[in-house]
Nucleic acid binder design. Sequence first.
DNA 1: CTTGACATACGAATTAATTAGTACTAAACA
DNA 2: TGTTTAGTACTAATTAATTCGTATGTCAAG
Lengths: 124, 124
Amino acid sequence: MRPKHNTLTPQELEIMKLVWQRGAATVRDVYEALLERRKIAYTSVMTMMKILETKGYLKKRRQDRAFLYRPAQPQKQIISGMIREFIDRVFNGSAEPLLVHLVKSRHLSEKDLQKIVRMVEESE
Amino acid sequence: MRPKHNTLTPQELEIMKLVWQRGAATVRDVYEALLERRKIAYTSVMTMMKILETKGYLKKRRQDRAFLYRPAQPQKQIISGMIREFIDRVFNGSAEPLLVHLVKSRHLSEKDLQKIVRMVEESE
DNA sequence: CTTGACATACGAATTAATTAGTACTAAACA
DNA sequence: TGTTTAGTACTAATTAATTCGTATGTCAAG
């Protein structure tokens, strides 16, 4: 048995990002935003948003004739969960090797590094 | 059309981690390691390792009767690619918000933070 | 030489994720 | 009032990832 994803799948995340940006969104809002990047059917977006609702990521209420969807959980919490899952999967749960990678490879700019140093120092 | 994964899938990664640990491994080696954690058929492992080979992550040569598999690319490069993909997908390509999350939430211990500060300072 | 252990090759079944078609409904309007 | 429009509900098809069964080959021990 394949263990089921308990984080957002790529397409689910794509949609959540659009909802987060907007605070709330209808299927049409999301559909039009996605269309700018790729071909997709209106009903595909609807299906995904319904899935996100049944999974507890979105909640809806009727607005005029359509549903208006809002995030059901804080964005930070979701993102944090995705980071956690990534660290578990790739680094067996320890964040430190990820940090080392980030600092050593070109994933971070000089500015980023200075910002971190400041953040760490302030949190002491 | 769904864009194809160009990083390791969860199960592929699981197997690569075992091969990385060992430097080289046969299907049996990996099979036995996986068995300690979950039920899996020998041939399933074989299929996955063949896939990893055709995707260019592993190369094989015959050792006695079985194939001995080795990484075909440096581990660092693969991991770096996975981090890149994650940052692209979750943070639209900028590493800095990931850092902020790591520093602010409990993903990092105090020791980790100090280690980073030292690393950053040394790299200046 | 035959049998058993262990390997690969190949093909297929299963599951999850994604996409989209079709039927139906209600409001808007000519 | 009938038709167009914009929405939902329901269902099905497609693709990728994962799992595994069966057929087959080879070597070594008896």
